[in-house]
């Protein structure tokens, strides 16, 4: 117990001083995961909506792909993107490897299926009479999707929360694609791996607490939005 106590007191000390390095890591985490969540939602929510309101060929196959993507291992997503962005790879000329932009790309890939899957599930969970009415109105596909998203808007916040929760917590993709370069591509999760490997447990726990606080704050905000958006 003495050991745990020492680790915690170290962690608290680090957190109370909250130095420049910790600020940089926390800021980059928020920037990378926040951007990936926004991009993932912008692509995933329309994708999920079109899957839910239906009416096109190949919908089943895409739905299977999305559901698989929801559980896709982050390290594999990282590896896939690594091969694409490698200097000899098809997108090597972009020179994005080991940059925050590449990390955003990797996390966006992880966020899209989550946002799409939760959106599709939420819209499909609307009452059958809502779906019947939506079909009966004979709206254009886009208008139909907009009405469905509006009706299930509380679920859209859940989609965003789930996507953010997934990307902010993952380590495999950002580690491979970002390289955990100090001051450049180091985020909270990769920093925790680094500090743990070097047995700097106080630092690791401090980073872990920051990560938890971010996850709590963002999910708290989104849950509040979700509740507020519920039908009375």
């Amino acid at each position: 117990m003495e050991f745990i106590g020492e680790v915690l007191s170290d962690a608290l000390e680090i957190l109370t001083s909250f130095g420049a390095e910790l600020w940089a890591v926390t800021g980059l985490t928020l920037a990378v995961s926040g951007s990936a969540t926004v991009l993932g939602a912008l692509i995933g929510i329309p994708l999920g909506t079109s899957l839910a309101v239906g009416g096109f060929r190949g919908r089943g196959a895409i739905l299977v792909a999305v559901n698989t993507g929801m559980g896709f291992p982050p390290v594999l997503a990282g590896l896939l993107l690594l091969l694409l962005l490698w200097s000899d790879g098809p997108l090597g000329a972009w020179g994005l490897l080991f940059t925050p932009a590449a990390m955003v790309m990797a996390q966006t890939l992880l966020a899209i299926p989550i946002a799409a899957g939760v959106t599709a599930a939420t819209i499909q969970a609307l009452p059958p009479s809502a779906h019947e009415q939506l079909a009966a109105l004979r709206l254009t596909r886009i208008k139909k999707g907009l009405v469905a998203v509006g009706e299930a808007r509380a679920g859209m916040w859940a989609a965003v929360a789930a996507a953010f929760g997934r990307v902010v917590a993952e380590v495999g993709a950002v580690l491979i694609i970002g390289g955990n370069i100090k001051g450049e591509t180091r985020v909270l999760t990769t920093a925790i791996v680094q500090e743990s490997r070097q047995a700097r447990f106080g630092e690791a726990v401090a980073l872990g607490i920051v990560l938890l606080v971010i996850a709590l704050a963002v999910n708290g905000l989104l849950t509040w939005l979700q509740w507020r958006g519920r039908p009375s």
Partner: peptide, 22 residues
């Protein structure tokens, strides 16, 4: 055809918005 289901459903929004939908 214009079809009125047995259990008509109004979407979230004003009554007027629903009235003009589609």
């Amino acid at each position: 055809a214009a079809y009125l289901p047995q259990h008509p459903y109004l979407f979230r929004g004003s009554a007027g918005w629903n009235l003009g939908l589609g």
